[in-house]
Design a protein around this nucleic acid. Structure first.
Lengths: 182, 182
DNA sequence: TTTGGCATGTAATCCGTTACATGATTAG
DNA sequence: CTAATCATGTAACGGATTACATGCCAAA
């Protein structure tokens, strides 16, 4: 048995619920929809599509002649069932790994300027992320105003936005602590 | 060349700066110090120690006869230099992966009760985490009051605390959104 | 005496990324 | 014409976990 606990097939099934797509389309779709908290590579995507087709969860349709060679996949009832079954399982615990915090924890063993630079980077990157996600919220509320999934999409963006703000605030706090002897 | 980008040796070196330890000690130490944002398994730890010894970054001392069989490692100047060099490198970008957000994003395809249960779990787990980290802060401020690293340790705990609170608040918000048609 | 904690280690395996290979089509 | 983009795929590799193997010592 291979790739049992992989979530790649589930992302694929979830997105194919919106509309039929090719592997290439899926990659692009993943980046602009769940991109701020998930990602997939082609090396995962194409094998996953083949396996889902074998299991009858999706059906692939070769593009009609004349077009560029591509295969568009659509979800089946079996696919929808598999997705629904996965969705009710409690999400698997993901062990945290934060390399920046490791460098902060051992901060005394390094030059303070280096640590300060890392914190500055985090602050600016997080502020940029927060702004981007705020813009995305406004855009979606406008463009997808009547999509039934909008509510769920906005919740995930809100998580990202709160997290980005939290990171920026913590970075400012940490820089402050580093600056004086507070 | 093997295990080039692994951060296991760096965690080992960082902790050995505090005091000499065995592999078994290191595992326990990792759990109670950086445990809320990092982890290592024996399968990584022991090979890393052997490699660090080969490279001259640590020196191992077999326990004196009579004691239980164990090998205590101490960091060397070469080890401190390797750690310092790593600490100034900007932390590698870690692609985010959040399975819960995936389940929220596709929430419309599942029974609402299942999603609500996931959010309840997150809320209670996050509240518990926040309380634990608050207690840990108080404990460290008391027990390690004069440790020069205290400042850095508290910063990492503060990150965890803010993050836990953020997660709890978002979960409450999400449950609220799910409850009505806001 | 037997259970549980101390202590070290390895082999199999897994999930996933990276790099590479290939080729068609469209826009400048 | 040629660079970029569309489009699909595979092989090799890499970091890490899991499960297993082994054995000593102390306490109940």
């Amino acid at each position: 048995m291979k790739n049992v606990s992989s979530r790649t097939p589930m992302v694929v099934l979830g997105l194919l619920c919106i509309e039929p797509m090719s592997g290439y389309d899926l990659k692009a779709m993943i980046e602009q929809s769940v991109g701020h908290f998930w990602h997939e590579s082609y090396g995962q995507l194409y094998p996953a599509l083949h396996e889902l087709e074998e299991r009858g969860c999706v059906v692939g349709q070769e593009a009609s002649s004349g077009e560029r060679r591509r295969k568009v996949y659509a979800i089946t009832d079996a696919g929808r069932a598999a997705l629904a079954e996965w969705l009710v399982q409690p999400p698997a615990w993901q062990p945290a790994r934060n390399e920046l915090l490791l460098k902060v924890f051992f901060g005394r063993m390094a030059q303070p300027e280096a640590l300060r630079a890392h914190l500055e980077d985090l602050r600016s990157a997080s502020e940029r992320d927060a702004a981007q996600l705020a813009a995305l919220t406004a855009q979606l509320e406008h463009e997808q105003a009547n999509a039934p999934e909008l509510r769920y999409w906005l919740l995930t963006i809100d998580f990202g936005h709160r997290f980005a703000q939290m990171r920026a605030e913590w970075a400012r706090h940490a820089l402050h602590v580093m600056a004086e002897g507070t």
